[in-house]
Structures are given as C-alpha cells and as structure tokens.
Design a protein around this nucleic acid. Structure first.
Lengths: 213, 213
DNA sequence: ACAAGCATACCATCCGGTTGGTATGTTAAT
DNA sequence: ATTAACATACCAACCGGATGGTATGCTTGT
C-alpha cells in the first residue's frame, strides 16, 4: 500500500509510523491519555493523515493491537528457545527469554495489549477483543509444547495446556503491573522465577499429577 | 469532618461519596477517561464541592488509592480465613477467599490500584506511589503466615516470604487483566487455582526446598 | 462573627473529528 | 503514446463540544 515518491521516500509510511508511535506512547501513557495530536507529532504527520488511515481513534486502537500481534509473534518465532529438543526445555526456555527481555525502560518491555485491555474493556469492546486475540493467540503458541511435555511424562492432570498457557500470561501481565507500581524491574523477574519453579515442579514431581482439592 | 444538617443528612458526606464514585467509575473506565464531571454527577455533588475537597484530579487519585487501602484492609481483616490454626491453611484460605469474591460485574471485583498504577505510572508518580503502597501493604499481611508455614515445615528456600507474597498479587492482577480481556471471570479463577497448586506443592513436596536453577 | 461545606456560573484550553485542497500515481480508452 | 478519469496519500485550517479548574457567594453550625 505505501507509495513512496522520488522527492519524499518516507511517503507511504505514515500508517506504519503512526502504529509505531501508538505502540510506544500508549505503553507509556495509556490509551485514553494519548491524544491523536500526540501520535501525529511523534509520527511526524498531520491530523489529516491520521484520519485518512484510521476512521477514528478507536480504530487506531484496534489496528495497534493487530500490529502488536503481528510484530510480537514474529519476534517470538525468531527467538532461540525453540531450538531445544525437549518440549519442557522449550517452555522453560520461553520463560527465560521473557525474563531476559525485562530490561531497559518500563514502556519498552511491557505489553501494549495488556495495558489497553485493562483500560478500555468497558468503553471500547472492539479494542478489547483485538487485545484478547493478541494475548491468547500468543498463549496458544505455548500449548503444543505443554501438551507434548505432559505426554512425554505421562501426566494426567486436572488442568489443561490452555489453562497453563493462560496462567503464564496472567503471571507476566501481573508482573508488569507490579513493576509499574514500584518502578522496579526485578520484582517482575521474581514472579517469572516463581512461575518457572511452578512449572518445573508440575513436570518433575508426583504432586503435579494429582488434582488439587 | 462531615457536618450533616437536620434538613439534609447527606451533607458532609461529599468527600466520601466522591471517593466511592471514584472507586467505582475508575475501575470501569480507567483514571484518564474518568472526568471530574463524571465523578460529581455520580456522587450527586457539584464541581465546587469537588475542588473544595480535592486540590486537583490528581489529588483525588491519591486519595482514592488511600481510601482503597483503608477499606480493603478492613475487608480482608474481617474475612474468615484468619480462623485457621495452620498458617498454610490461612494462606490457602486467603486464595480461596480471593476466588470467591471473583463474581458479579468486572468493575466490582477488580483492583482499583492495579488499574490506576498501570495507567498513571509515568504521568502521575504520586498516584503510582499511593497504589504501590496499597498493593504491597496488602501483600505484607500475607508474609507472617508464609514465614510461619516455612518455619513449621523447616523449609529453607531461595525465595523469601516477601517475594511469594508479591507473586500472589502479581497472579491476581494478571488474572484480572485476562478476565477483562475476555469478559470471563472463570479464567481468573483458573489462574488462582494454579497459584494454589503452586503454593501447595511448595510446602508439601521436597522440590520446594531446593533452589531453582 | 466566622469558618466549613457546599452550589452556581463561568473560562481558557484542549481534543476528536471535519473540510477542502494538493501532489502523486494508476488505469484504460483512444 | 497520450490523455482523461480516478484513486491514494497527505496537509493546513477550522469547529463544536468537552474538560480541568476558578471566582464568588450562599447556608448552616458553633
């Protein structure tokens, strides 16, 4: 869709630059506090360009969630933890990878769609749905490894691969909130450690094979 | 400070009513999307009353977090799980209690300070701090039971009571995000179940007594 | 009399969205 | 090969309503 010209090679990139601006600014300020002008200024385009590409601010929110889903799924697909032969090692490797990327500024490693979902679940159901699709689409990539690890160890539990995959995302989202509340990244990594310990115990002790309660 | 009159017994309650309105509306819409007029309308007072009691919208955010800390700490202090004799039973009872109160409308059981912290951590550091105080003040109430349970079972681990207490709050906050994203309360309860299973295993298997990594 | 607890009215600014226009590129009939 | 017709990408200026905050004054209890 982009149509660059000879004089201005940046032409045609307005949409992408607005989505990148949205990704960065919304993570730092939230959706409601981010104005269309903020986005235009950061992207270096005018409001006319904004409303040419997006019907409304709400539509940008949906597009930003979709863009997030695309870019992060490519990012994780390229991550090294997939190289492990054992599915449990891949799962724990995923969590190590998540721990590794918890660094730098808060707005750089926290989750756009988690932030947006929390904020707009009541007022913008369309954005909420796009965020849910991104979160659970990502969680779904963990399920095959979880199922394979259960299979390999003959584990019959009262929890499902989908449930554990969702739980990993809950822990990560919650870890981000604690990090934002304290300003401390370490507390987020600590929660991921607890999650790793849980999963390790689930697959390496007998307790994991019997139901709770 | 309230000064009720004979004609209008509600007089003097403006501040409290504004805080209650803030608790309810901010949980449903977020802090930035909640206008001062929204709050005044819901509390049944005028803007003059609002700015008589609060210097600014930001000041109301801080007061709302403090009010949340007060009311929830009283709420949990009165909960039945404290009756258990065994500290581990109290800890698991706390999580059962948290599960039980996940019902009704989303804005009724989710956490005000978690929502606010996520949204304003960058733009309103004062509110962020008040939210952190509320979250970790609540987490601190779990630490004595965790420490006692470790003691009773002679557990020497590479995690601290404070770290596990923080993790429980991370799981709860994350569970709320997933619930908001999907509109489904059950997924939040599932995460609490995983957390219960984790804590159960930590204290009832040998794996919990050795370090991860 | 005086201060606390409000209400009314008002303001300056901001914000999402619109309008009209220009520059560039594509399609297809002649 | 030219050109008319159309589409895409973007800009500058503007608009109406909303928003946080203020100025002022009225009530009520002490």
């Amino acid at each position: 869709m982009p149509r660059p010209t000879k004089q201005n090679p940046e032409r045609g990139a307005a949409r992408t630059r607005l989505l990148e601006a949205a990704r960065d600014i919304i993570r730092a300020q939230g959706f409601a506090a981010t104005t269309v002008d903020d986005l235009c200024k950061s992207a270096g385009v005018t409001k006319g360009a904004f409303f040419h590409h997006f019907e409304s601010k709400e539509a940008l929110g949906v597009a930003a969630a979709a863009y997030w889903a695309e870019t992060t799924s490519a990012f994780f697909a390229a991550a090294p933890y997939h190289a492990h032969a054992d599915p449990l090692a891949r799962l724990l490797g995923y969590l190590d990878f998540r721990k590794e990327i918890i660094q730098g500024d808060l707005a750089e490693f926290t989750c756009l769609v988690g932030t947006m979902a929390q904020e707009v679940y009541g007022s913008h159901p369309i954005i909420r749905e796009a965020c849910a699709a991104s979160i659970f689409g990502h969680a779904a990539t963990l399920e095959p490894d979880i199922a394979a690890a259960m299979d390999a160890r003959g584990i019959k539990a009262d929890w499902t691969p989908a449930s554990l995959a969702a739980h990993t995302q809950a822990v990560l989202q919650g870890a981000f909130i604690l990090a934002k509340a304290t300003g401390d990244r370490a507390i987020a990594r600590d929660s991921v450690d607890h999650l790793k310990r849980y999963i390790d115990m689930l697959f390496t002790t007998n307790s994991g094979r019997e139901g709770l309660q």
